[in-house]
C-alpha cells in the first residue's frame, strides 16, 4: 500500500516539475521537447512489457504453470496499451517537428508492426475456445512473432532514413543537461512502477476470473 501512495506522489512531482521547472531542450521548436518525459517512458515500458510477455510465454511452454500464462497475457495487454500511448505521443511530436502526424519513419513502422503482432495475438487468444490450447498457441505465436522483429530492425532502415531524434535526447549524450536527465530518469522509474502496479492488478484479475470459471464449471 505504502509504495503505491509514494508512487502517486512521485508521479505528481514529476508531472509538475517537467512542465514548470525543467527548461525545454535546445534545438526543438517551442515546448515540444517536454514530450520526452512522457513518450520515451511509455515506449520503454512497452518494450519491457513485450519482452516480459515473451519470457513468460517461454516459461509457460516449458513448465505449463498457469500463472506464467497469466503473466504473459497481462504483460502483453499492458504492453499494447503503452505501445499505443507511445504511438500517439510520438505522432504528436512528429506533427510538431516534422509537420505530419504520420510519415512511415522507421520508428513508426516498427511500432505499428508491434501493434499488429500483438493485435493478432489477442485475436488468436479470443479464437481458441479450449483454455489449455489457447495458452499454448498464444505462447507459440508470441515466440514466432518475436523471431521476426530482428528482421524489421535490419530491413526497415535500409528503406528510409530515420528522423527520430537520437543524440540530442539520448541520456548518455552531453546534449541533455543535468536537470533534464534527473527528471527523465525519475519519469522512467515512475512509469516502470506504474507498469508493475497495473501488471499485478491484471494478474490478480485473471486469477480471480479463472477461479470463478472453474468453480462455475465444477457446478455441472
Amino acid at each position: 500500500m505504502i509504495y503505491k501512495i509514494l508512487l502517486t506522489i512521485w508521479m505528481n512531482l514529476i508531472i509538475a516539475a517537467v512542465f514548470l521547472y525543467v527548461e525545454p531542450a535546445a534545438g526543438f521548436p517551442g515546448e515540444v521537447s517536454r514530450i520526452l518525459f512522457f513518450h520515451v517512458p511509455t515506449a520503454w515500458v512497452a518494450t519491457l512489457a513485450f519482452f516480459l510477455s515473451m519470457i513468460a510465454s517461454c516459461v509457460y511452454l516449458i513448465t505449463r504453470k498457469v500463472n506464467a500464462d497469466f503473466l504473459a497475457q497481462s504483460s502483453a495487454e499492458l504492453g499494447f496499451l503503452f505501445c499505443f500511448l507511445a504511438t500517439v505521443t510520438g505522432s504528436i511530436f512528429a506533427k510538431a517537428t516534422w509537420g505530419s502526424f504520420w510519415n512511415w519513419d522507421p520508428r513508426q513502422t516498427s511500432i505499428v508492426m508491434l501493434l499488429m503482432i500483438y493485435g493478432a495475438y489477442f485475436v488468436l487468444r479470443s479464437a481458441v475456445p479450449d483454455h489449455e490450447k489457447r495458452r499454448v498457441f498464444a505462447g507459440v505465436y508470441s515466440i514466432l512473432a518475436f523471431c521476426t522483429v530482428p528482421f524489421l530492425v535490419f530491413v526497415v532502415p535500409r528503406i528510409t532514413n530515420s528522423l527520430h531524434p537520437e543524440d540530442t535526447l539520448n541520456p548518455a549524450s552531453p546534449g541533455m543537461d543535468m536537470k533534464t536527465l534527473i527528471f527523465f530518469l525519475g519519469s522512467l522509474c515512475a512509469y516502470t512502477g506504474l507498469f508493475v502496479w497495473m501488471l499485478r492488478l491484471k494478474v490478480r484479475m485473471l486469477r480471480l476470473l479463472d477461479r470463478e470459471q472453474r468453480a462455475f464449471r465444477s457446478n455441472f
Binding site: 493485435g119 488468436l124 512473432a145
Partner: peptide
C-alpha cells in the same frame, strides 16, 4: 484448430510476413 478460420489466417500471418 481455432474458430473463425478464414479471416484469422490473414490476420495472424500478415504481421509475421511484413518484414519479408
Amino acid at each position: 484448430q481455432a474458430d473463425a478460420r478464414g479471416a484469422l489466417f490473414s490476420a495472424l500471418s500478415f504481421p509475421l510476413l511484413l518484414p519479408l
